[in-house]
Amino acid sequence: MKNMLTKYLIDFSNLKLTRPISDKIRILEIIGVVITGIGKFVFMDYFNWRLPFVVFAILTWSFYVFYRYKKDNNVLRDWGFRWDNFKSVLWLMLPFAIISMVSFFVIGYIQGSINMSWHIIPLLITYPIWGSIQQFLTIGLLAGNLKDLKRVRCNKGLIIFVTAIFFSIVHYPSIWLMIGTFILALFYGYIYLRAKNIYVLGLLHGWLGALFYYTVVNQDPFMDVFMKFI
C-alpha cells in the first residue's frame, strides 16, 4: 500500500503544469518563424548583413523566450530547454552525427572540397548558439506548434516533412545546404516529437553545420562573417 501511494505521488509530481496555449498564439509563433525565414533572404542574402541579422534574430527571440517564461515558467521545459533528458537524447542522436561526419569527409574527398583551417574552432564554439535558435524556431515552434494545434490535427509524418521543406528552403541558394538541412530536419523532427531537447539539437546542429561548410560546401563562414569586421 505504501509503495502504491509513493508511485501515485511520483506520478502526480511529474504532471505538466504548463498553461494551455491557444491556437492563436501558436499560429502567431509560426508566422513569426516564417517572417524570420523571409528576413534571412532580405538581410543575409540581399543586403549581406549576415552577422547583424544573426545577432538581431538571437536577441529578439531570446527576449520572446524570456517574456513567455515570465508568463509561464514551465514553458521552457515544454519547448525542450531542459537538461534532464540531455544525455539520453544525445546518445539517441550520436549515431546519426557520426554517420553524418564520416559522410561529409567522404563527399569532400571525392569532390576535392575539404578546406579545414583553424577558423572552424571559433565556429564550433559560437555556431551552436545560432544552431539552438534555428532549432527552436524550426523544430520547436514550427513542428511543435503544428503538432499541438487543437483545431487542425496534422499527421506527424506530414509535420516532419513540411518542417524539413521549410528548413531546406531558407538555405537557398546553396544546393548542398538545402540537401543537408532537409535530411537533418527530417531526423531532428522525428527525434523532437519523441523527446524534446533543444540543447542537443542546437549543439549538434552547430558542430555538424560548421564541419559541413569546411568539407562539403567549401566555404569559410568565419572569413565571410567575422573577418570583415576586424
Rank of each mutant, 00 (worst) to 15 (best):
T6G: 00
Y8M: 09
L9S: 08
N14Q: 14
N14E: 11
L15D: 01
L15I: 15
L15A: 10
K16G: 08
L17H: 15
T18F: 14
T18C: 15
T18H: 15
R19W: 12
R19S: 13
I21G: 04
S22G: 12
K24D: 01
K24F: 13
I25M: 03
L28D: 08
L28H: 00
I30W: 07
V34T: 15
I35Q: 12
T36L: 08
G37C: 14
G39D: 07
F41W: 12
F43A: 09
D45V: 07
Y46Q: 06
N48K: 15
P52V: 01
F56Q: 02
A57C: 07
L59F: 05
Y69V: 09
K70V: 14
N73W: 05
V75D: 12
L76D: 00
L76Q: 03
L76S: 07
D78V: 02
F81E: 00
R82V: 11
D84M: 05
N85F: 11
V89R: 08
W91F: 14
W91S: 11
W91L: 15
M93H: 06
I98Y: 14
I99W: 14
M101G: 10
V102Y: 04
F104D: 14
I107C: 00
I107V: 05
I110T: 00
S113A: 03
M116H: 03
S117N: 11
H119R: 12
I120W: 13
